[in-house]
């Protein structure tokens, strides 16, 4: 049988770089071996195998345009992520993907974009930010609202300067709880959102974060008169297959793995009550 015919087969990839980017969060850079094709778009995800423990899904944090390697920002929180965090550069991991749908970046060209990232949820939004910055003229105003529980949990801090310096781009960062070195905004992302109050005019909001953050951010956006068809989100769910078989990630008749992970609010509004 052709190897390509087994969708559960992981392909070996080598860890070529590991960077600490926040407390318990590392950026893993992976080079696929043997020139295995991997054609992906912002919003898609892949399963990474820590051989001997298992595999888990992670959103791609890079764009093919900017990065020759695949990048994943991974929080150490369960058994697979624990095993990945213990690896050294040079180690071989399994890569299965790309899976799922992607952000409709073509469709939203010409519009203002509000990106709302909470904690590790910012990882799959980085490709959105990179894509917009790399094709700046194709989009209207870019407003980035970036949040974490504490300053030490903020991800991609080394890129903030570059993001903020881009034309027609605003970056607002907040933490739920500051520390002695933190001089920025303190408060929930919803409070920051109310203060920044981006206009819903010709805008699209793109959200990713923990379920509770998504829930309240959606409510705040509604208060700011954003319509459900202006809200995009990428969702996280427990998954075992990524191809609509294992039955674990369904939200109603939608599978987060194949119908998502990117959803318009209109597609999933009636399920979010049980999801977030």
């Amino acid at each position: 049988m052709n190897e390509r015919d087994n969708p559960l087969r992981p392909y070996p990839g080598r860890l070529v770089g590991i960077k600490n980017i926040a407390q318990d969060i590392k950026l893993f850079q992976i080079e696929l071996k043997d020139g295995q094709p991997f054609d992906y778009r912002p919003g898609q995800f892949a399963f990474l195998s820590a051989f001997g423990v298992g595999e888990a899904p992670f959103g791609l944090a890079s764009t093919a345009e900017r990065s020759p390697v695949l990048e994943f920002a991974i929080n150490r929180i369960g058994t697979v992520t624990d095993a990945l965090h213990s690896l050294e550069p040079g180690a071989v991991v399994g890569v299965r993907g790309p899976l799922g749908n992607w952000f409709p970046l073509e469709e939203i060209k010409g519009r203002n974009v509000v990106v709302l990232g909470g904690g590790i949820g910012g990882a799959p939004l980085r490709p959105v930010i990179h894509s917009i910055l790399d094709h700046r003229d194709d989009y209207g105003k870019l407003t980035i609202l970036w949040a974490a529980r504490t300053p030490s949990l903020l991800i991609f801090t080394d890129e903030y300067e570059q993001w903020a310096a881009a034309p027609d781009t605003e970056l607002h960062v907040t933490v739920d709880e500051g520390d002695e070195r933190w001089s920025g905004h303190v408060g929930l992302i919803t409070q920051l959102l109310e203060r920044v109050a981006p206009s819903p005019e010709n805008a699209v909001a793109i959200i990713c974060g923990p379920p509770i953050m998504i829930k309240f951010t959606l409510l705040t956006l509604e208060k700011l008169k954003f319509q459900p068809q202006q809200m995009l989100m990428t969702l996280e769910a427990k998954m075992k297959c990524g191809i609509g078989k294992c039955g674990r990630c369904n939200m109603g008749e939608k599978f987060v793995c194949v119908h998502g992970p990117v959803f318009w609010y209109t597609e999933v509004a009636r399920f979010l009550e049980s999801f977030v």
Partner: peptide, 18 residues
């Protein structure tokens, strides 16, 4: 595995949509 199990959907962070 079974969708009837309490932990079936619980994610690593503890959130459980069902």
């Amino acid at each position: 595995d079974s969708c009837m199990a309490a932990a079936y959907r619980r994610i690593a962070g503890g959130h459980n949509p069902r």
